[in-house]
């Protein structure tokens, strides 16, 4: 369910914006075997980009050592209520997904 939903929450706490984003992704390590004993091919999120009001603030490269359906939490300095936060990912198959929310 690579194209499954994402869910994000962004809350302002004393000048710092706490962002929590859930992503639906199998995050296959390439080492797991299916019930028939065949290796399940590598399939993982490679890049995660975070934008604040359209400006890129986080550009991250991640690897396959992260669990299925990962959750990312991070803190952004500054930000104000109503600011627009966008998070997008691209995986090693070129599949992408994104979501956005306003800081609350």
């Amino acid at each position: 369910m690579a194209a499954g939903p994402m869910k994000m929450r962004a809350t302002l706490n004393g000048g710092v914006t706490d962002v929590r984003v859930l992503m639906t992704h199998p995050m296959e390590t390439g080492q797991r075997k299916d019930p028939d004993g065949k290796l399940v091919p590598l399939h993982f999120i490679q890049n995660v980009t975070v934008k604040l009001n359209g400006r890129t603030v986080v550009e991250s490269q991640i690897s396959q050592g992260i669990s299925r359906n990962p959750v990312f939490t991070f803190r952004l300095k500054g930000g104000a209520k109503g600011d627009r936060i966008e998070v997008s990912w691209i995986d090693n198959h070129g599949e992408t997904n994104q979501t956005e929310t306003a800081v609350a």
């Binding site: 869910k7 929590r20 859930l22 639906t24 359906n69």
Partner: peptide, 11 residues
């Protein structure tokens, strides 16, 4: 604290 359960709720 970061449960993917919400993804399933959405689906």
């Amino acid at each position: 604290e970061g449960s993917p359960v919400e993804l399933f709720e959405l689906q």
